[in-house]
Design a protein around this nucleic acid. Structure first.
Length: 596
RNA sequence: GGUCUAAUAGCUCAGCUGGAUAGAGCGACUGCCUUCUAAGCAGUAGGUCGAAGGUUCGAAUCCUUCUUAGAUCACCA
């Protein structure tokens, strides 16, 4: 990397000229702003005091030394305290020739054999997936890919919440109202069918509560005493006692849901290396609690419930076992963390879970640390913001959710409409279908992933997701143009961009240099995206590169360029841009079409 | 009430560990298709970076206070 050479040379210059001793890593180089001439910039202000020089003089003297030291540095210029280095054109040409057909360009070498385990999705089996889940799934999948590109082994896991009183609610409502209907009899997706009964339960529940309240019962009491709620709670007890009928129904209805989820996951393009079910894991963690009691990390209250005191850490007391000895969410999560650590030999666990659970994960981490697991300090809660609608949060029970399947279907229709509106109606049926899928998912995924995961984001159903501007289809369109050119170069000129070499006789214009420098930074961008667990970094990068390519494309001939050396260089640059766009989009889980 | 997070153009969002004149897209207004895909390109208008202090050669970025919004503080998950 040229930056490292520069850092080394600057360090040396600082030392020999002014006896300033710095670490190479602490010398900050940035890419030169567009308005100024140069490729890399050093800000010299931090060294003024020690060097006892004026900014201009200091910059000049360092520049002089560095140019002598590194042959690739063609020149430098100084503006105030900014020292701008320009690289020799041949450096860039060499870079292109060396890397344009490198399959792993931008990716980092394998750095660890111990896998990172990333949990994402984690749905409940009582309702279908909605837009919030989409954000979760896309983030999880993409971050996994980004970490792989950073050289880590990654295991993707899903922890399905398939038990509990909320699951019993759908079951009770189904028993009461369904007349035996199934996904088959109804021709309805299983998760939607089950979700329907979850909503029905809530409706009936509210009705019954109101009846009691009207009779003069206190609302709080009514909420607990209502028959339908009692039934759900009784069903849960039966479930825990392994009552055969309840278990059968549970298995049947969950089966419907899984069939539905599989379709949604499939269409969304996400997958898992391992799926955990809470029905198998909810009893884990109890042993840990007992160990903790013995070690004196936890304490027992008079009623028999077990707690941990985290007030010294700025947190509260937290319950770990109920007085009846049953476990809570936290207990189970302690258990599953250890399970994962053991299953995969992993010291790095990542949880993709909404920011509403920040507190939970703070506590989880602290508790595991107190239990003496040194890997606990590496637990990372990838805490993402909520997807909000113009009138606030999505609420499943109030029917204000944006359903995942519906949304994907709407996007598909829109992709179709847009394509036909552009007069592109000559695709064979199968190819058209594939294209609409590619474009609709590209639009959806890019829309979600381009925003910083940690921030809340807004989705306005009325405006739907755009296909122009800073969007997935914009980048896909750029790729399609590129493919077209690369194809024609091969067919009409018999030039294979992959293998042909660029001559050093040519010069490079500003638009070309913009693209080259952006491509050059790809590895850094991947590193930064990995460091921040941020697909948004990749999305912004892909957009920048696509925009720069389009600007170049607009006022430079490629295949019609008369100077053959320049034509070859442009074909190669076009090809390379396409490769990098494709890779970046892949990290987001977005396909790119060869034609559109 | 305690804790945490956010606030940047009319709207949706970028802005890396402090660095040169704060950027995109959408929307509005202008231009550009007999030339490699116009889902594109070029341009105009639009900003007290929530407010006030502070640190610094230098602050949207760091610190303090305040305002506003959201999350959380369950023997729910």
């Amino acid at each position: 990397m040229i930056e490292e050479l520069l850092q080394r040379a600057i360090k040396k210059a600082l030392f020999t000229l002014y006896n300033i001793d710095t670490e190479e890593k602490e010398i900050v180089l940035s890419s030169t702003k567009k308005e100024f001439e140069g490729d890399f910039t050093l800000v010299v202000f931090p060294y003024l005091k020690q060097a006892k020089k004026k900014p201009e003089d200091l910059a000049k003297e360092i520049g002089e030394e560095v140019v002598k030291e590194i042959p690739y540095i063609a020149s430098y210029n100084v503006i105030k305290g900014f020292l701008n280095f320009s690289l020799d054109k041949n450096f860039w040409i060499e870079f292109l020739n060396k890397n344009k057909s490198n399959e792993t360009f931008g990716y980092h070498a394998i750095c660890s054999d111990k896998p990172i385990v990333i949990e994402y999705s984690s749905p409940n089996t009582n309702k279908p997936l909605h837009l919030g889940h989409i954000r979760n799934n896309l983030l999880g999948w993409s971050v996994a890919e980004i970490l792989k590109a950073n050289g880590y082994a990654v295991k993707k896991v899903n922890l399905v919440n398939d038990r509990g009183v909320h699951i019993c609610k759908s079951m009770i409502a189904w028993q009461m109202f369904a007349n035996g209907e199934t996904p088959q009899t109804n021709n309805e997706k299983g998760d939607h069918l089950v979700g329907k009964y979850y909503v029905l339960f809530d409706k009936e529940y509210k009705k019954e509560v109101k009846e009691l309240v009207d009779k003069g019962v206190d609302e709080k009491i009514a909420e607990q005493e209502v028959p339908i709620m009692k039934q759900a709670q009784q069903m849960l007890v039966k479930w825990e006692n392994k009552d055969k009928d309840v278990r059968d129904l549970w298995q049947t209805m969950n089966g419907w849901v899984y069939e539905g989820f599989d379709k949604t996951y499939n269409r969304l393009g996400v997958d898992f290396d391992k799926v955990y079910y809470e029905s198998n894991t909810y009893l884990l963690g109890k042993n840990l609690v007992n160990e903790g009691l013995e070690k004196g990390v936890f304490f027992k209250k008079e009623d028999g419930s077990v707690w941990i005191d985290l007030t010294e850490e700025g947190l509260d007391e937290k319950l770990l076992l109920r007085k009846d000895g049953t476990s809570v969410y936290m207990t189970q999560d302690l258990g599953t963390a250890c399970l994962r650590h053991n299953d995969f030999g992993s010291d790095n666990l990542i949880y993709v879970v909404g920011n509403e659970q920040n507190y939970h994960f703070q506590v989880l981490k602290k508790v595991l640390e107190k239990l003496g697991f040194d890997w606990a300090k590496n637990i990372y809660h990838l805490s993402y913001g909520m997807v909000e609608l113009p009138n606030g949060k999505m609420k499943s029970r109030e029917g204000t959710v944006v359903d995942a399947d519906d949304l994907m279907q709407e996007m598909y229709e829109q992709a179709k409409t847009q394509t036909l509106e552009h007069g592109k109606n000559d695709f064979p049926e199968q190819e058209a279908d594939k294209l609409y899928n590619t474009l609709s998912l590209g639009a959806l995924k890019y829309f979600i992933l381009k925003v910083d995961p940690t921030k809340n984001m807004l989705f306005n159903p009325a405006e739907s997701i755009d296909f122009n501007g800073n969007t997935g289809p914009f980048i896909q369109y750029t790729y399609a143009r590129i493919s077209s050119i690369v194809r024609k170069a091969m067919q009409e000129k018999n030039i294979d961009a992959k293998t042909i070499k660029i001559s050093e006789k040519i010069t490079l214009n500003d638009k070309e240099m913009d693209i080259i420098k952006t491509i050059y930074s790809f590895a850094d961008v991947i590193k930064e995206a990995g460091r921040n667990y941020s697909p948004a970094t990749i999305a912004n990068y892909a957009f920048l590169l696509a925009k720069q390519f389009n600007a170049f494309y607009q006022d430079n001939s490629i295949l019609k360029e008369t100077n053959e050396d320049v034509m070859i260089e442009r074909i190669c640059l076009t090809y390379f841009s396409g490769q990098v766009i494709k890779k970046a989009m892949h990290l987001l889980g977005i396909d790119v079409p060869n034609r559109m």
